[in-house]
Nucleic acid binder design. Structure first.
Lengths: 352, 352
DNA sequence: GCATACACTGACACCGGTTTCCAAGTATGC
DNA sequence: GCATACTTGGAAACCGGTGTCAGTGTATGC
């Protein structure tokens, strides 16, 4: 790094060495340099060393745009999501970036609006414009089969994250939501609760259905009769958690425990309870799902199901780009993750 | 290079029309098509119409990789950040994407670790590899002058978001943190508080210094003597808010109101108060800063300073890429935003 | 009527890589 | 010793756009 003065920035850019510079200084052809970069085996080790030395001296970095053009694919991974939870999205981004660390891939984010009629056209334009290497689909939009088919149709690799048998293993990273919710609900039963309500996610989503199924299995296994109106619907937002909780707590008899299908809604339940002068967990036990930051940050700290979203995202990204140096290893990436109960302070035996 | 992709997907990609196809069908040269795409004025309107029609028929979309190569710059905006707050980061992403809507630009995210000694080298490698159109720097890392200089040195445009006179207007989008904090603190004084403590951000950050200055100005203006130990340091995380609150509440006399320099820490204060059996706002008033989702979602809802981060991010992105069609308008983008107090339920007059 | 200016268009080189194809050099088989 | 196979390296085409510059056709000036 020689002195870098305030020369015009164009000059600095122009000074960037290209493959031609490397070839000239090493006394070989472009193609030979290209072989070195791409680790071709058809190369004399002596030649390789010489080229590598020149590359190091010049600080040469291949131009990704040129490679992208020649290879007919770029090195961008898209993250398409409509998840309302900021912490979840950021965790996913973190997991993906961990997997992409040290590779030439970059992460491009693309939030979408599930309810917009233009959503599919937006994504189509996006995929058509940028010829992404591949995309990652985050729940809940990952459950949209039309979207997945669109990716396929446009020749774009994809991996979906989800909670059920959404797709082939090649295209899916999943977790055992049903079992985890069953475990959490059973925990409430074991604490002595009989009046247990559920706030589920929006109808029509498999993740919501999976969690509901786990809940119902646990209730049934305990021999408890579940009133129809003990199942309320939310949309994974804090506000919907408040509303659902108010509906449930207005019932007679009101539940002594509520399982909410994510932490945001669980936080809403705690909020609604506080507003009514009910204390958690003395008057009402609450369990959430996800174990995002909010779970530990509200009072009382929330008992919740830890959804291993970061490892899942990492795995999904690896599935997309393959392990460095070995494309085939990608398929061997684990695609099933276990969620587990985290016991904090929002559950207690019911008052009697 | 084992087996090739499925023929189908290759065929689909290959079927994509190029500028040559358009030129041939329209009976003009590549260059003319290029002129149509780039809205050159030196064009017969008849020719333009014919070309546009062919483009529409073919569904032609220019290949960004090829353009990036020819123009020597790509259409990627980088977001470099180390902000610990997920909601803030996501809001920023949203604001940027709003500004990029309808353009050919995409957003690439790049979280960094401020404390890592490799941080600067990481960023250098990132900028050298991808030749980004420009980058956006989010606080607190946006206050790092070395980083900004690095961007400049590598010929990469940048805009910093921050709270003070960090840089030239061309490179800065700022907010009036000092005045907003003064207003919030004055509100506490007006409620009758005299024992008011501050939890500030990490020393060495201008944003932290600005907020502290606003706090001290208000205290002084009220003629209150501020004990040295009424200023505690946090690092913007929830946990540091708990710790700082505990230190403050152990003092004699303990404060009756605490201003925390962000919502996360304010939530930590509420958390710590609850743990001690203190009720907010009856026993302790709390004000936060940012107005992220957590502020409305904890109990009681937090009185806080709304930091207009989404418009700020939008403005920063526009400053970087320029308004569509008019590059000069970019400089005219407002670069100063007003924060304002949002009154919720975490403040009450002190008990006496 | 002719020179000049101007508007529009196309041929061609170029961005920085990869790929194809071929030639030269070397090792091996008979 | 010669034919053949295998290694290694280079020339040129190509990916899909943009910049330069020259050429054509029309309007204007005198």
């Amino acid at each position: 790094m020689a002195e870098q003065d305030k020369a015009s920035s164009t000059a600095k850019r122009a000074a960037k060495p290209t493959i031609n510079d490397v070839a000239r200084l090493a006394g070989v052809s472009k193609k030979t340099v290209s072989r070195v970069i791409n680790r071709s085996t058809l190369l004399n080790s002596e030649t390789r060393e010489r080229v590598e030395q020149v590359i190091a001296e010049l600080g040469y970095v291949p131009n990704p745009q040129a490679r992208a053009l020649a290879l007919r694919r770029n090195f961008l991974i898209g993250l398409i999501h409509d998840n309302p939870n900021a912490q979840t999205v950021l965790n996913v981004q973190q997991g993906i970036l961990e997997a992409l660390q040290g590779t030439e891939f970059e992460l491009v984010v693309r939030p979408v609006d599930r309810r917009s009629p233009l959503m599919l056209e937006d994504v189509r334009a996006f995929l058509n414009r940028q010829r992404l290497f591949g995309v990652l689909l985050l729940p809940p939009i990952s459950e949209n089969d039309v979207l997945a088919n669109l990716c396929d149709e446009l020749g774009c690799r994809y991996v979906r994250m989800g909670s059920a048998q959404l797709d082939d293993p090649e295209h899916l990273v999943a977790s055992n939501d049903r079992e985890a919710v069953r475990e959490a609900t059973t925990y409430l039963v074991d604490q002595g609760h009989r009046l247990i309500a559920l706030i589920e996610g929006p109808r029509g989503f498999r993740s919501a259905a999976e969690r509901r199924a786990g809940f119902e299995q646990a209730i049934e296994a305990a021999g408890i009769e579940l009133p129809r109106n003990y199942i309320a619907e939310g949309n994974y937002t804090f506000e919907s958690g408040i509303e659902a909780a108010n509906r449930l707590l207005d019932l007679g008899p009101p539940p002594t425990a509520i399982f909410a299908s994510n932490d945001e809604m669980a936080a809403g339940v705690v909020h609604a309870a506080n507003q009514r002068g009910l204390s958690v967990p003395e008057n009402l036990s609450v369990i959430g799902f996800d174990d995002t930051a909010i779970a530990a940050h509200i009072w009382p700290p929330l008992t919740t199901v830890r959804w291993p979203i970061i490892p899942m995202a990492r795995s999904a990204a690896l599935k997309l780009v393959g392990s460095p140096g070995d494309r085939t290893k990608a398929a061997a990436e684990p695609s099933f993750f276990l969620s587990s109960l985290v016991r904090r302070a929002s559950v207690a035996p019911p008052r009697q």
